[in-house]
Amino acid sequence: METAGEVGIKRPDPPVVGKVNHHSIELYWDINNVYKRIGPSNKWFRFSIEEEDVKTHMYGTVYSGYSMKHVVEGLDSSTSYRFRLKVTGHNGEYAYSPVVTVSTTREPMTGEHLHRAVNMNDEDAVLKILQSGHVKVDIPDKLGFSPLMIAAQRGYFRIVQLLIDHGADMNKENGSGKNSLILACFAGHLDVVEYLRQQGASWESRDKGGCTAMHSAVDGGNVKLIEWMISDGCEVDSRDSGSKWTPLMRVSAVTGNTHVARRLIAAGADVNVKDKDGKTPLMVAALNNHERLVRLLIEKGADCSITNEYGIGIAEMAKAFNRQNMVVILEDMKKEIL
Rank of each mutant, 00 (worst) to 15 (best):
K224I: 10
K224W: 08
K224P: 01
I226T: 02
I226V: 09
E227H: 13
E227Q: 15
M229F: 04
I230C: 00
I230Y: 02
S231T: 15
S231L: 14
D232M: 06
E235N: 14
D237N: 13
D237F: 09
D237K: 10
R239D: 02
R239C: 05
R239I: 05
R239P: 01
D240V: 07
D240E: 14
S241L: 12
S241N: 14
S241T: 15
G242Y: 14
S243Q: 13
S243G: 09
K244P: 03
W245K: 03
W245T: 00
W245V: 00
W245E: 06
T246P: 08
L248E: 08
M249N: 05
R250K: 14
S252E: 11
S252T: 09
S252I: 05
A253K: 15
A253V: 09
A253Q: 14
G256I: 11
G256S: 12
G256A: 12
T258S: 13
H259V: 11
A261E: 06
R262S: 08
R262F: 01
R262A: 06
R263T: 10
R263P: 01
A267D: 05
A267Q: 09
A267Y: 07
A267H: 06
G268D: 03
G268W: 04
D270N: 09
N272Q: 07
V273P: 00
V273F: 00
V273E: 08
K274V: 12
K274M: 11
K276A: 12
K276E: 15
K276T: 12
D277W: 11
D277V: 02
G278E: 02
K279R: 12
T280L: 01
P281Q: 07
M283W: 03
